[in-house]
Simulated assay, not measured.
Amino acid sequence: MKPKITAVVFDLDGLMFNTEMIFNKTGTELLRRRGITDVQPVIDRMMGRRAHEAFAEMIDHCNFTESIEELQVESNEIFHALLFDHIEPMPGLFDLLDLIEQQELPKAVATSSGRDYLEEILTHFSILDRFQKTFTSNDVEHGKPHPEIYLKATHELGHSPANVLVLEDSSNGTKAAAAAGTHIVSVPHEFSRGQDFSSAKYIAESLSDPYILNLLRS
């Protein structure tokens, strides 16, 4: 039996925008400079995590001697050189936002990225003020796959987790939302499709998937 959805929480990267493609290009270049060509196992470990935790995974997996801060500075330079030449909304995003607003449901963003970055992206697309709440890595002690950010989001929205639809693109995010007791729907993309989504209530093809639309209309 499908729940009555009373609020919606979006992940950001790879779910609302194609930024995981840009992160993938960034990570590939960062690793290429260090002689590593088999990049996907590294990127899979990093995806969905807060930046410092993601780079800790990279260092551990690749046995790098550089610090998190050194890798992060170089990565940020690569990423921002690519960002606004390549960023696009994921298919169906704006129609889905319109539908949620037609249903008068509150919505939020819960991302492992930082607040400055979130506001930069949402402001670029003129949708920051369409969200009642935003939650970032700055707001929690524990990053995904820990459920803290989704427990915080459902609490501050004032809705039971079981009635909150969470949309995620990564295994780490899916595990976090499932552990928080939300109705988690995963929307994998080309860079996350092989990850573990076994804890999702449903795996959607896109933000326009009939399952998502029918869940909101019901």
Rank of each mutant, 00 (worst) to 15 (best):
P89F: 01
S126Q: 12
D129G: 00
V73S: 07
D116Q: 04
M46F: 09
G48K: 10
T123W: 06
Q72F: 09
Q103A: 13
H52N: 10
D44T: 14
D85C: 03
R130L: 08
T123S: 13
E57I: 13
A54W: 04
L83M: 05
M58A: 12
P106M: 06
N63R: 11
Q102L: 14
F125G: 03
D60A: 15
S67C: 04
I59S: 06
E77N: 14
E66K: 01
A110Y: 03
I68M: 05
A110M: 03
M90K: 11
N63I: 00
R45A: 15
G92T: 04
T123N: 13
R130C: 04
N76D: 15
E104D: 13
L96W: 01
D129C: 03
F79P: 09
V73G: 04
L93M: 04
D129H: 11
I78Y: 11
A110N: 02
F55V: 05
E88H: 12
G92D: 05
Q103K: 15
T134D: 01
H52E: 10
P89Q: 03
G114R: 09
N76K: 15
R130M: 06
H52L: 06
P106D: 04
S113N: 09
E74W: 05
L122G: 01
P106H: 05
L93F: 01
E120C: 04
T111S: 10
Q72A: 14
N63C: 11
I100Q: 04
A51M: 13
I121S: 08
S113Y: 01
E57H: 09
L83G: 01
V109L: 02
S137G: 02
M46Y: 08
E53Q: 10
E119L: 13
R50H: 08
E120D: 08
D116E: 05
T65L: 06
A51S: 10
T123E: 11
K133E: 08
A54P: 03
Q102V: 10
T123Q: 12
E88I: 13
A56V: 01
G92I: 11
H52G: 00
E101G: 14
H86T: 07
N63P: 07
R45H: 10
F79K: 08
F64H: 00
M47K: 07
Q132V: 09
D98Y: 11
M47C: 09
I87A: 03
L128M: 09
S75C: 14
L96D: 00
I78R: 14
E69A: 15
E88Q: 14
D44N: 14
S126P: 05
I59P: 02
T111V: 00
L96R: 03
R130Q: 11
T136R: 01
S67M: 02
L97E: 06
E101A: 15
H52V: 11
E104S: 09
S112G: 15
Y117I: 03
F125E: 02
L105I: 12
P106R: 07
L122N: 02
C62N: 03
E119F: 14
E69D: 14
E69K: 14
T111W: 00
G114F: 07
T65K: 13
P91T: 10
M47Y: 00
V73K: 14
C62A: 11
A81I: 04
E77T: 15
L122W: 02
F79I: 12
N76W: 12
M58C: 08
K107P: 07
E88D: 09
E88A: 13
I127G: 07
F125I: 05
Y117V: 01
T136Q: 02
N76M: 15
A81K: 15
